[in-house]
């Protein structure tokens, strides 16, 4: 098994999203961009940034870096949370929408618009869930 957030995991994630998600059925043809900031990533308490761009339901860009800032691209939504929250989401013990409404994830951008894309995003997470259970 690959470790969550390792280079291998990121590569597999990208591959999964490209190959396994149906732009129509799973992704509802959405066009948007999301920057997910994951804080307190162990073991060195780092911050990781995941930038995901979707065009008509297809993954157009998936950029990952480490560091407190991410200036490369501007996203429609910025979602910030700690590693534990993302882990709970990936393990299925916490839904993305619930994490947002429970303030576990901080959102920059319209909540209304964010909740509209929750279903496709849940689909992405569902697909990523299959990659690993090693945290």
């Amino acid at each position: 098994m690959v470790k969550f957030l390792s280079d291998e995991w990121i590569a597999l994630g990208k591959q999964y999203m490209l190959e396994q998600l149906d732009p129509e059925k799973d992704m509802k043809h959405i066009t948007t961009s999301i920057l997910m900031i994951i804080e307190h990533v162990p073991p060195h308490d780092t911050t990781m940034n995941f930038y995901l761009e979707l065009k008509e339901g297809k993954v157009n860009d998936f950029t990952v870096n480490t560091g407190a800032t991410f200036t490369e691209k501007e996203a429609v939504f910025i979602i910030r949370g700690n590693y534990g929250t993302y882990k709970d989401i990936l393990q299925g013990t916490l839904g993305t929408a619930l994490a947002l409404l429970k303030n576990r994830l901080a959102l920059k951008g319209s909540k209304m618009e964010a909740l509209k894309i929750i279903k496709p995003i849940d689909g992405v997470i569902e697909s990523l869930r299959k990659i690993t259970d090693e945290f």
Partner: peptide, 10 residues
């Protein structure tokens, strides 16, 4: 913010 999705549960 407004709109019905302005829900906070914590």
């Amino acid at each position: 913010d407004h709109e019905f999705t302005n829900i906070s549960l914590s």
